[in-house]
Amino acid sequence: MKQIVDYQNELSGKIALVTGGTKGAGRAIAERLKNAGATVVISARNQPETPDKELHFISADLSKPEAAAKVACEVLERFGKLDILVNNLGGSETPGGGFAALTNTDWEETIQANLLAPVRLDKAVLPQMLEGKSGVIIHIASIQGKLPLYDSTLPYAAAKAGLINYSKGLSKEVSPKGVRVLTVSPGWIMTEASIRMMERISESSNVPIKEAEKSVMTALGGIPYGRPAKPEEVAELVGFLVSPRAGYLTGTEYVIDGGTIPTI
C-alpha cells in the first residue's frame, strides 16, 4: 500500500527557531514551518510590522555576543526543547567604493552578524539537540560566498564563505550524533528591501522599475531564469530540508539562485 504523507502536519510537535524571522525570507520561512505544523519562534531586533500571534517573538540583537544565550534560554525554558534552528539573520550595510572604503568596524560588524551570530547560537542550542540525538540546523548563506561583489559587500561575501565552510565542518562532527546541518545559499531575493532598492535606482536613474531590476541582474552577471527568487521559494526549500523527507541529507550546500552562478 502506498504511504500517504501529510505535508501540512509533517512538522507537528516540532519546535523551530528562525532568526531574522520578522521580514523577507526569514518571515517566509517562519510561515512555511508554521504551516507544516511546527511551533515557530522568531527573533529579531524589532517587532514584526505585521504581528502573528502564532509566531512567538523574541527581541534580540544576535550580533551581540550575549544575545545567543538569552534566546536559547528563552526558547528552552518556554518550550522545553528545540528541534529546528534556521540561522537566517544576516545582511550587509557596508558602503560602496571597494576595499579602500571599508573600515575595521565595517568588517567586524558584518562578520559578527553573518558568521559569529550563527556560530554562537549553534553552540547555545547544540547540547540539547545532541542529548536528544535529534535536530536540524540550517545556515542561510549566499551565493556571494562563491561569487563575491567587491564594490560594496566584500565583508558580507567573506563572512558567508566562512559560514559555508563552518557549516560543513560542524556537520561532520554532529551528524554521527543525530543532528543534521545544512546550508542554503540563495542568490538575489526580491524582498521588501529589494523592492525599495529598485525604487531608489528607478528614481535616481530615471528609468522604469523593470529597467532598474534588469540593471541589478546585469551586475550579478545575469540570472538565466530571468528574475530574482521569491521569499516563498527559498522558504519551500528550507521547509523540505528540515522535514523527515530529507532525513538522509546533511553536510550539503543547496544553491537557489535561478542559475546565477556560471560554474559547476
Rank of each mutant, 00 (worst) to 15 (best):
P51Q: 10
L82Q: 12
P51S: 08
F79Y: 10
A72S: 10
V86D: 13
D52K: 04
L89V: 15
I84D: 07
K64A: 11
A72H: 05
N88R: 04
G80Y: 03
S59Q: 09
K81V: 00
E74C: 01
P51M: 07
P65D: 11
A72D: 07
A60F: 02
E74D: 11
V86F: 12
C73S: 14
K53S: 14
A72Q: 09
A60T: 06
I84K: 09
V86M: 13
N88Y: 02
A72M: 06
A72F: 00
N88P: 04
G90D: 05
L89R: 13
G90H: 04
V86P: 15
Q47M: 11
S63Y: 07
A69V: 01
K81M: 04
F79L: 06
L85V: 07
G90I: 03
A60S: 13
K64C: 03
K53H: 14
E54G: 13
L89W: 13
L62H: 08
A60N: 12
A69M: 05
F79P: 04
A67H: 03
S59G: 03
P48C: 07
D83K: 01
S63N: 12
V86R: 14
L89S: 14
P65R: 11
N88Q: 12
C73W: 12
I58L: 07
K70Q: 12
P48V: 01
D61M: 02
F79A: 03
A67C: 04
P48A: 05
T50W: 05
A68C: 09
I84T: 09
L62T: 02
E77P: 03
D61Y: 08
P51R: 09
D83I: 00
E49H: 15
E54V: 10
F79K: 07
H56R: 12
E77T: 07
E77Q: 14
I84M: 06
K70E: 08
I58W: 03
